[in-house]
Nucleic acid binder design. Structure first.
Length: 985
RNA sequence: GCGGGUGUGGCGUAAUGGCAGCCGCACCAGACUUAGGAUCUGGCGCUGAAAGGCGUGGGGGUUCGAGUCCCUUCACCCGCACCA
């Protein structure tokens, strides 16, 4: 036993040793000055939750770490940092419940995450660690806010500019010539008027132009959380975190004019290598549509209703106009007779929660206002309706309804019996009685000057006419809304604004950070003000109230990739030199759930900072990969609901059919709680199931004893029915008609979560198999992007591979001798041709695999390589040293140890990655598969140097060929050198 | 409904248009062992005694040759959803 000890692979000691070595030597600290080319690989910012990491979290981190380590071997100066998105709702909710300051729980959670990450052996540069809740960090988040506050978007230069340039223009020319992204209701004024404005008026006017502004907007208000939420934080009408109902509410809020960047956010997508689905999500979210505005004069009034339409070609098919319930004209135009119904409808529609509204998408509702507009071309009178299918926030909040050519208008018209004039003849059969024709194809009819044109030409012509007659103009609309930025919460960055005479003022930059004050409770005040209103004596210069809302979770993460470049700079967000050196993130890895939140905001802020000249790049990440989600495998346990309610389970028995035989198990009726093994439960109707903790099951077999101990008191007195009897208090009572005593649970794939008792922690895997095994195994599970359930069934294969790798270096193969320390056994002899071929084949594959992020196939290739070298009893240093470098990005601990044992003093981390040499793969012969009509029949070994004609000749002369030709003449012979020969008969 | 993706052994998966199923798990047989959740050897798509036949969700096409390309259809997963 002792003699064999050198063969043992003691991963616990090895991993601890090298993790300490890397930390003590700062092995992975990125250099800010380097001759080497740079490579920046970043993981999406984790939020340190109280639950700790589960095995799904490291998947992306392992992939990015492999990339980081690989690039170091390839001679790059690698930036691979990690930090914490540490402001956020969960810590605050916990604080509200327990009174514990969120800073304390956050600190504990970060420590736990850090500890877990350290065990996996990531090559992060921890000197650059950042936390968004750290004043040293959020000072710069506040600084960016002030930059955005002090900017306006100039459509002429198509970028953000300093607000001073706008003020100068106002002083010179008023706003007549200003072409800016600003509020819709901005009034025009002259230079003289501007100069006569009061402070307040000037502030209010500028507010309509600032890129972050205080404005009234419909927001997603979540009463349960007591805060507003961004659109991407609302899913199916409820809050993404916690699932609380959300309603629309008009509130004064700090917002970000992200809509100014809509077109650039759209265009930028074509310049970055992100997944198509992610780009599509963003394109859809931005939602660009080209169309025209069109004014309808309200009959008997000077007012007009402006609509936005992408189908001006259908203007002669308009049969009514619909306003959103929130539309400001509704109140003004409603007739006396209709007032009561309209008021009722509007009130009801406004009060409906987002969820109700979404649930009723297919229910048609609306009311007639009693008012009419004139058709702009025919002058015919058209009814004005109110309908909640028209959204207040999109376009103008009003539509011209063309029931024959718009599905939604069709439904509305059908429901209320309104006319559906057809103006397009489709190019295929279509029944206008049952559905609208929405396709942009066909010929125009009944449309005056548009008659005979096809749709595309008609759209063009209609816009021309509308513009000629001054009825409206061509316009591009975006679905993207400005992002609400203020949160009525405590645990976030304070917004660096104070109010002087009701006028919001940005704090001077040199007074930042504005520290988050202490409060007595993390709840709103009695008056409904945000928690920060509770802070005692918290006033700017002791006299001016600060802004009481805080920034949303996405503020800190919208620019963090820049801070890692220069994490300790106290004078600047990032120095220009370092921002230029590190540039873009080369590889960004994270979950697809950030598609329309973080990933849109970070692009927005990056473009803004670029406009202001702080950085040179205008997209944060060149390449982005979404790692798949690792789901959990839950184990469900069945329980009999009420044994007396089911006729078949009476008289102390449980009966079910198995293999066509009715089986009966007697369980005394004194036992009330009965669990049923899954295969039995499936044959009984009266069962419910719940999650059993997975640690009590193995291959879906339940450890009844451990589970019983874990159960609460009442359930401890339970019977566990198997198909051959039942367990009760540790004793098995066999039924007399055979069957087994194994109690099974039923596996089910679902999200990994504490409440489902299916969480697997990486710590457990590291403890049992080691970090290198965890790393390899997570990669081995399948392609990185694919979602998959966690399942440890295959882990022994990977752990066996590492043992075998270890053994390869320690086996006393012939010709070897002790080398370096440990018991490695090496030979300096020339490697054989076969050994070199194995090595170079592997170099080629691994290089290709990493370059295309195919980490799962690498693991297979390592296995093949080690199997071959083991069979060859290879102990050549010239083979085994490069092999370690190949494996080291994947399994860094074992390779460091072996590298060290081979006598090297330095870490393996910066060893040159082996170069592939084609020469070693060249073979003298090739074993040609010979196929007939595409079907392989036999193989024949031929010299690799033969010409196609020679190959064809030799194949046709071969004995087997004659057999398969069976006397027939070959029509054609296809020879693909070193691939295949195909004979067509 | 729209958008994106995935369908290959018992399972996870692999295959620049060129011998489908590499590698691993599970399983079967054997060796070494007091023992095996250790290690090693061999087998393992389905069917068939064998020769062979059949096989990448279904149907069609391009090609000497298709898991791979094209069309069509079905199923499942993810995202979005009254955006005029």
């Amino acid at each position: 036993m002792y003699l064999l000890d050198y063969m043992e692979y003691h991963f616990r000691e090895i991993e601890k040793k090298w993790q300490e070595y890397w930390a003590n030597n700062k092995t992975f600290a990125a250099k800010n000055n380097s001759e080497k080319p740079k490579y920046y690989v970043l993981d999406m910012f984790p939020y340190p939750s109280g639950a700790g990491l589960h095995v799904g979290h490291p998947l992306g981190y392992i992939a990015s770490d492999i990339m980081a380590r690989y690039k170091r071997h390839k001679g790059f100066n690698v930036l691979h940092p990690m930090g914490w998105d540490s402001f956020g709702l969960p810590a605050e909710q916990y604080a509200i419940q327990t009174g514990q300051h969120p800073a304390i729980t956050t600190k504990q959670n970060i420590a736990r995450y850090r500890e877990q990450m350290d065990k996996i052996g990531f090559s992060f540069d921890w000197d650059r660690e950042i936390k968004t809740s750290d004043p040293e960090y959020y000072k710069w988040t506040q600084w960016v806010f002030i930059q955005i506050f002090n900017s306006w978007y100039n459509k002429n230069s198509n970028k953000a500019e300093k607000i001073e340039t706008l003020i100068a223009e106002f002083e010179k020319n008023g706003n007549e010539k200003v072409n800016a992204c600003c509020d819709e209701d901005t009034k025009s004024f002259t230079a003289a008027q501007w100069k006569s404005f009061s402070e307040k008026e000037k502030s209010d006017t500028l507010m309509q132009y600032r890129i972050t502004y205080l404005g009234e907007a419909y927001v997603n208000w979540c009463p349960a959380l007591g805060t507003v939420l961004a659109n991407d934080e609302v899913k199916d009408g409820v809050s993404e975190r916690g699932g609380h109902p959300v309603e629309r509410k008009l509130m004064k809020q700090w917002s970000m004019r992200i809509t100014a960047y809509a077109q650039r956010l759209l265009d930028g997508l074509d310049t970055i290598d992100w997944t198509e689905s992610l780009k599509e999500s963003q394109r859809y979210w931005i939602g660009r549509s080209e169309g025209t505005s069109l004014k309808f004069l309200i009959n008997g009034s000077m007012l007009t209703i402006e609509v936005f339409t992408t189908r001006p070609d259908t203007v002669f098919g308009v049969s009514f106009v619909t306003l959103a319930p929130e539309h400001e004209l509704v109140e003004k135009i409603t007739s006396q007779e209709q007032k009561a119904v309209v008021d009722e409808y509007v009130t009801k529609a406004k009060n409906r929660s987002e969820r109700e509204r979404q649930a009723d998408v297919n229910k048609v509702s609306g009311v007639f206002t009693g008012a009419y507009v004139e058709h702009p071309f025919t002058k015919k009178l058209i009814e004005i309706w109110v309908g909640d299918y028209v959204l207040a926030g999109y376009g103008t909040g009003a539509v011209m309804a063309v029931p024959a050519h718009d599905e939604r208008d069709f439904k509305f018209a059908t429901h209320f019996g309104l006319e559906k004039p057809q103006v397009i003849t489709p190019n295929t059969e279509h029944d206008f009685a049952t559905a609208s024709w929405d396709e942009k194809e066909g010929k125009l009819i009944n449309s005056d000057f548009l008659n005979g044109l096809d749709v595309k030409a008609a759209i063009k012509k209609a816009i021309e006419e509308i513009q000629n007659k001054n009825l409206g103009k061509g316009k591009i609309n975006f679905r993207l809304r400005d992002a609400v930025f203020g949160r009525q919460r405590y645990w976030g960055e304070p917004i660096p604004i104070y109010y002087k005479d009701g006028i919001p003022q940005a704090m001077p930059e040199n007074e930042l950070p504005l520290i988050l004050p202490e409060v007595d409770k993390y709840l709103p005040t009695e008056d409904g003000e945000p928690p920060l209103a509770r802070a005692k004596d918290w006033k700017y210069k002791n006299q001016f109230d600060y802004e009481w809302t805080t920034m949303p979770g996405w503020a800190g993460s919208s620019w963090y990739f820049l801070r890692y470049m220069d994490a300790k700079n106290s004078g600047q967000l990032v120095s220009k030199a370092l921002a230029d050196y590190w540039g873009q993130v080369d590889l960004y890895i994270g979950g697809s759930e950030h598609a329309t939140g973080h990933l849109l905001y970070v692009r927005f802020w990056t473009k803004f900072l670029h406009d202001m000249g702080h950085i040179n790049v205008d997209e944060p990440a060149k390449k982005l990969i979404n790692q798949g989600m690792i789901q959990g495998t839950s184990e469900m346990i069945y329980r009999l609901i009420d044994r007396n309610s089911n006729p078949s389970q009476k008289n102390d028995t449980i009966s079910f059919e198995k293999d066509l035989i009715l089986k009966t198990i007697h369980v005394p009726s004194i036992i009330k709680n009965i669990f049923i093994s899954s295969e039995v439960a499936k044959k009984i109707t009266s069962c419910v199931y719940k999650n059993a903790p997975i640690e009590f099951t193995k291959n879906s077999e339940l450890d009844i004893n451990s589970y019983t101990i874990w159960l609460n008191t009442e359930d401890k007195d339970a019977a566990f029915v198997c198909d051959g009897g039942y367990w009760y208090k540790g004793i098995f009572h066999a039924a007399n008609n055979g069957g087994g005593n194994i109690f099974r649970t039923s596996p089910e794939v679902e999200k990994m979560s504490k409440s489902k008792y299916n969480v697997v922690s990486p710590d457990d895997i590291c403890e049992k198999f080691g970090a290198d095994t965890l790393r390899l195994y997570e990669m081995f599970l399948g392609p990185l992007e694919q979602s998959k359930p966690w399942n440890t069934n295959g882990i022994t294969g990977v752990s066996g591979f590492l043992k075998k790798l270890w053994k390869l270096y320690h086996s006393p193969f012939e010709g070897g001798q002790a080398a370096g320390q440990g018991d490695v056994n090496m030979s300096d002899a020339e490697p054989t041709k076969a050994e070199l071929k194995t090595l170079h084949k592997t170099i080629k594959k691994i290089t290709e695999d990493i370059e295309r992020f195919s980490f799962n196939t690498s693991v297979s290739n390592f296995m093949i390589c080690v199997n071959e070298l083991m069979d060859a009893k290879c102990n050549k240093r010239a083979i085994l040293e490069p092999l370690l470098v190949l494996v080291s990005p994947y399994a860094p601990h074992i390779t460091e140890e072996l590298w060290n044992q081979l006598g090297h003093k330095e870490s393996i981390a910066f060893e040159k990655f082996p170069e592939f040499n084609e020469a070693y793969l060249v073979e003298d012969n090739f074993n040609y598969p010979v196929s007939f009509n595409g079907k392989t029949r036999f193989n024949i070994e031929l010299s690799a140097t033969l010409s196609n004609a020679e190959i064809e000749k030799m194949i046709l002369e071969a004995e087997q060929t004659k057999k398969f030709l069976d006397g027939k003449q070959p029509k054609k012979v296809i020879v693909v050198p070193k691939k295949i020969v195909n004979i067509v008969v």
